[in-house]
Design a protein around this nucleic acid. Structure first.
Ligand SMILES: [Mn+2]
Ligand SMILES: [Mn+2]
Ligand SMILES: [Zn+2]
Ligand SMILES: [Zn+2]
Lengths: 132, 132
DNA sequence: TTGTACTTTATAATGATTCTAAAAAGGAGT
DNA sequence: ACTCCTTTTTAGAATCATTATAAAGTACAA
């Protein structure tokens, strides 16, 4: 099992639900963006074992907390997640309601000149909205 | 009435609810960030006329569509709006759950090198998450 | 003033997400 | 394998921000 160690190292018990979700999320050529609903569909397509919705939510949040997923800041009725955990940014196609990766190299370096005392920067995320 | 013309020019009838909401939103020294709940509280503090929740939602969305408000892309349980409609960016203090403006001058120019054919850029927004 | 389109409102509906609490499963130690 | 304890899963209920409904009220052009 490919993801046993990953889960154990994270202090997450490698249950069959988590292993299956790992396969759907991480056994792919390319990274991708998804909502919880997208993920449930993928799970059901991949195998006949249903995983309860609560478990899908729990697992996604557990993976996010461990840094295996990123949440994308966007105003949508559903929360978007990203299996691409590298520093990068996004186009958001308003018409298609689709996210597109923007590599760091697609944007010049970003320099935050303002400082807030007692706080440090955790992340810098750029969202570029696209219209026709 | 200070906002009659503004509303008429927008094709929005200047009802007393809209005028009151204009006062709360735009009769201020500084711009600010708010959720619908914040706004309802401000309205109730300012006068005894209650405005129905549906009207607050309708009005905020009408003003956003007209460009008098901006929605801030952030993952929160409530949608944040901004009376500062200039091009600018945000710190988000994760601990305090507060937004702080980042002027364009606080960030160097942002150059989006990647192009998507048939699409044009509508907005570029940077969200900087802060932790302790 | 009258007609009509727009607006407000109370209320219900929606839908994503979280909560609950009981059953199931993982795993360390024996 | 058995025990014991903790973690996890699960169905279903609850939450809650937001949107829809449709009836009553209002703005305003003619
Ligand atoms: Mn979440
Ligand atoms: Mn909205
Ligand atoms: Zn991405
Ligand atoms: Zn702002």
């Amino acid at each position: 099992m490919k993801y046993l160690k990953k889960l154990r190292n994270s202090g997450l018990r490698p249950t069959k639900q988590r292993l299956q979700i790992c396969e759907v999320l991480f056994d792919t050529e390319k990274t991708f963006h998804f909502t919880i609903n997208d993920l449930v569909k993928k799970i059901n397509k991949q195998s006949n074992n249903k995983i309860s919705l609560a478990t899908v939510y729990n697992t996604v949040h557990a993976f996010e907390k461990k840094g295996y997923l990123k949440q994308i800041p966007i105003n949508s009725s559903q929360t978007y997640f990203d299996t691409n955990i590298s520093d990068h940014h996004h186009f958001y196609d308003l018409k298609e309601e689709k996210l597109i990766d923007l590599d760091n190299s697609d944007i010049g370096p970003i320099n935050i000149l303002k400082k807030i005392s007692g706080k440090k920067i955790k992340s810098v995320e750029v969202l570029v909205k696209l219209e026709d």
